[in-house]
Design a protein around this nucleic acid. Sequence first.
RNA 1: GGCGCCAUGGCCAAGUGGUAAGGCAAAGGUCUGCAACACCUCUAUCACCAGUUCAAAUCUGGUUGGCGCCUCCA
Length: 469
Amino acid sequence: MKIYNTLTRKKEEFIPIEQGKVRMYVCGPTVYNYIHIGNARPMVVFDTVRRYMEHKGYEVNYVSNFTDVDDKIIKKSVEEGVDSSVISERYIEECKKDMEGLNVRPATTHPKATEEIGGMLDMINTLIEKGHAYTGADGTVYFRTRSFKDYGKLSHKNIDDLQGGNRSLLVSGEEQKEDPLDFVLWKPKKEGEPYWESPWCDGRPGWHIECSVMSKKYLGEEIDIHAGGEDLIFPHHENEVAQSEAANGKIFSRYWMHNAFLSIDNKKMSKSAGNFFTVREIAEKYDLQAVRFFLLSAHYRSPLNFSEELMEAAKNGYDRIVTSVGNLKYLMENVSAETINEREEELLKEAASFTDKFDAAMEEDFNTADAIAVIFELVKFANQNASASNSKGFLKALSDEIILLSDICGLIVEREEQMLDSDIEKLIEERQAARKNKDFARADEIRNELLQKGIILEDTREGVKWKRA
RNA sequence: GGCGCCAUGGCCAAGUGGUAAGGCAAAGGUCUGCAACACCUCUAUCACCAGUUCAAAUCUGGUUGGCGCCUCCA
């Protein structure tokens, strides 16, 4: 299994710290609103990484935080006149609903920043003791960036270039800083803001320290994989590395994975530009499974554009897989032979090669675009080779293979058995009778009526099938 | 200014040295009362220029065009 490591800028063979186990941390969202489609990309991508690893037998300890103390949350709480925890709790719950729709499995642990303050105070204290941090006159605690000799190793930035680039910040104040590169570990409260007591001042943690502490608490000082959006590489992850390695004296994370950005209509998503979609909005129009399919249709390190047109194409592609599985299931229920015959056995051998091809794609830094292409090849193979003359065992083997590969991608392709109410069944029967009598006008009338109710009818060689729109 | 990424058929997207996967869309056909599904057929020499090589979309240099980070951000 190979992983592209941001740290080395190379694809590397994945070797876990502890055999058979994976310690993985994914930076989660700040909960001040519904999550947007851009937030969904890392959730889906890294959930897929996790699923594949578990499929390969790894035990994955998957930790993803909720940042529930932040300027934006506070701003919203002021606007609504409620406590900031009301805001964060609300959007954590909403986020979980969206994740469920996207079939993103809950993490092993979902820590919240506000519940980990003690650990943050400890780490900040350690950093001060080791000379990596200092306190300003107002009680703000800063990380002494230049005290960490490897600063810049993750984002591959030269510390002196950074200073040059940030020259404008020098004049913007913050005279308490020893160096403009230093960043905040703990900041004093402002009136009306949530705060915690600390040896330095009543206040709250800086953003970066949160992840360092939560990662350490739930996964240990040294972890296998740390992941997130590519925009987090600098400064967030760079600062995490500095804090954690300076405090713990150990390599923080061996592999760093970053997903590329998702744009909307070829423009960067931004609220001011108005090209901003929440997962909730999209769910009104599309099945979130199609959204997941869409997000996996490109490699996670390639930029991906989101648009109505592209979403429509993704929906159609996803439906093709669902239809195929539905057809196999239908055949299975209407076939008499149970056991697989010789000819079928040969075909199944051929079908098994698709699974090998699928694995090969995933082994190469989780090439989901290729993996999905393999699922389509398998779907085509099934469509070509499955018919009413096959045995149940053969049809089930094909169906199971498609379902399994899709499931590794977190795609649900098996439509749940739904009961039709008796009125609808009566209409379908009436339509069949009308067709028999060649009363096609009445037959079409009924079909349209059902379509209004969201039931799509298809007349196949084997009989009438229906599905929900 | 610094660091980095990308440019493949109408659209999306794999492929990183041996003569271009897959999906969507369009077209023709089979099936069908019609429609839908499915199946069959059909669409590229890989931005441009130069070079390395027996061989390049794939390596090197350059040109043009797009994008990201350096500031809260998935």
